[in-house]
Design a protein around this nucleic acid. Structure first.
Lengths: 190, 190
DNA sequence: GCCGGGTCGTTCGGGCTCAAAGTGTACGGC
DNA sequence: GCCGTACACTTTGAGCCCGAACGACCCGGC
């Protein structure tokens, strides 16, 4: 079970595997737990409040972004929701077919598409968001509000570090070489 | 850009949307940032150390689990890696086709399948893990080791809360009703 | 007027994701 | 030896996921 014990155990085993090489344990444990917690929270929410309406976490996040920000251009929604533009095309189509989201062309710029909630979508969010927030409180119930604030603040620093320096870092790791191509993805026409 | 400002702004907008209803802000911000940080970290690692070998985060995690724990039964690997058994079937096949993983039937229990690294897999991990750990240090570089420990500890409490009480919680939310079926998934034969 | 560089959303390919259904093995009771 | 229950992995179907390629569009310069 992925509790505290096995995490520590895994660290020791990894250390042994590497012989003399230094492992940055605290950093490794922090990253591992960020991911573990994200999965646990997502799974809990998908199987509780979102299950009844058969929405995925991602679909809900997109809906939430549009609800909060109002009618928006797709690229901003993708950015805020943390998914790629290509993924948003699919997700927004799913939400449209469920009658929760509306897609409209921009009146003056033909390249843009605007997303907005339908009346049903507004209704859905004002009904489901409180339940969602209630579960957010449930999963964090072993932390005080103060601790939640600290936790959020530390995570914010991780996000900012990657946002502000990630690209440079990746470039310098490549050391001038071209980035390796991805095995999957669209190919040039011939 | 999903930095601190927009998060706070989103909270205020959500509050306005709900009128008088209480929003648990700290809890909401904590959950939102857990997910944001997890995505940022995953994306950075996939586009740096994992890109050259064209492995996804999930594939790497599976490899890591098998590397650390040694030859293991698939259900334990799935559990540790935080993915479902069905997903593991696919991922382990990908890794097998890349020559990094070996799948063997259990010598005495025909139901079990054992996963182990090939020589190439061992080689790969001892080469790539140090680089991976280096990036874990990079993304957390705005936190002290002390703060990383605290962060990991708080996240551990979130994970434990969901693991220990999540199922009961979901059951009680349903209030005796049958869980809603998922739209996707296999159908009965007729 | 039109041409070329830039931007936008969409398409595409390979792969991941889950849960439910299905297949096959194990093992205790009789 | 056979039967039923339990268990472990695989298959399936619908959908998410990314990034590169693509086509439609915008706009400044000429």
């Amino acid at each position: 079970m992925p509790g505290q014990r096995s995490i520590t155990e895994a660290e020791n085993l990894a250390q042994a595997k590497l012989g003399g090489i230094r492992v940055r344990r605290e950093q490794m444990a922090a990253v591992a737990n960020i991911y573990r917690a994200a999965s646990a929270v997502r799974q809990h929410l998908e199987n509780s409040v979102l299950r009844g309406s058969d929405l995925t976490w991602t679909a809900f996040v997109v809906l939430w972004v549009v609800w909060v920000w109002g009618e928006s251009e797709t690229r901003h929604v993708a950015e805020e929701a943390g998914i790629s533009k290509g993924t948003l095309t699919g997700v927004s189509r799913t939400l449209e077919s469920r009658g929760l989201l509306r897609r409209t062309g921009h009146p003056t710029d033909g390249r843009l598409v605007l997303l907005a909630l339908t009346a049903g979508g507004e209704d859905f969010m004002s009904r489901v968001f409180p339940a969602f927030n209630e579960e957010e409180a449930f999963v964090t119930s072993r932390l005080s509000s103060e601790e939640c604030r600290d936790l959020a603040e530390m995570l914010r620093r991780v996000v900012l570090q990657v946002e502000e320096h990630g690209e440079d870092r990746r470039r310098s790791l490549l050391n001038g070489a071209d980035p390796a191509p991805r095995r999957s993805g669209r190919r040039a026409r011939e």
